[in-house]
Amino acid sequence: MLGRSANGVFWMFRYLERAENTARLLDAGFRMALTRGVNAARDEWRSVLVTIGQDAGFATTGADYAGPAVTNYILRDRDNPGSVLQMIEAARTNARAVRTALTREVWEATNESWMGLRDLLSRPAREANLGDVLAAIRRQATLVRGAMDGTMLRNEIFNFARIGTFIERADNTARILDVKYYVLLPSLAWVGSSLDNAQWDTVLRSVAGDRAYRWLNAGSMDPRGIAQFLILDGRFPRSLAFCYEKLRSNMGSLAREYGGETAAHGLLRDAAARIDQTGIDTIVEHGLHQFIGEFIAGNQRIADAIAADYRFVD
């Protein structure tokens, strides 16, 4: 396939994944704002913006860190290049550019997502319908994924799409952890306070992991357990371990299809081994923040290596 098409498919799925994760993050922030006081909500909205790297951009609007302003900035602000609307548009533009690499179903699901969300986001979202808007974004992502799963040939195109998805998802989960790492550190003063519980709950909700975590831990919640769950639990589809297991599998298929590995395979193997071989105690003792920071940088290096190895650009 063309290097440009591989690049297009890779980024199409990165954008779709990022849009979906941004919606989850907003969902969690929204819930925090509903159940906690104004001050906690303001902190929460700020941390949502920091997580997706839009704090500086939002600050230039001069608006208050309140629900409607933040959600609309993230969802649909024309001046925000990272808004969900622009991400869906970017995903669709990439899909158009690689139209021949996609099945009709995948293209139509992507195109319809864009048409639907463009209509939905043509007006500011109000608190009353924010839930519907966020649900629609998640639903559209599910549609594309389903069309993908049901109709795409399992070849290089599929693998590049999946690699884009999991590079992005690992990055997004890591960023949530990075911004919230202090919440997950053992702190004598706060342990068991209701604010802690709410913060932990928010972290889990932002990655749609609250229910799974509760089910696994029978209602008890502790920061170390949450960190372990999000980083190391290979059963949870948004954990770093899960994403890297999938990356290894898709990169492995590519290697088989191409009859050999590239530099990116080596980087990935090393990074995956670090996750496999490091226990949660070591991670917490040596610094969760540092671990996550290194992970994000390493994830980026793998993405760059894939782009270079498979000639995404000239």
């Binding site: 063309l2 290097g3 440009r4 021949t100 290089e156 191409y258 000639r311």
Partner: peptide, 22 residues
């Protein structure tokens, strides 16, 4: 068939060639 743009193509060994992932 492949859908190519000018930026995907160049002359290689007297042929028009497209930049593929390989």
């Amino acid at each position: 068939a492949e859908l190519v743009e000018g930026s995907d193509l160049r002359v290689v060994d007297g042929r028009i060639a497209m930049r593929t992932t390989r």
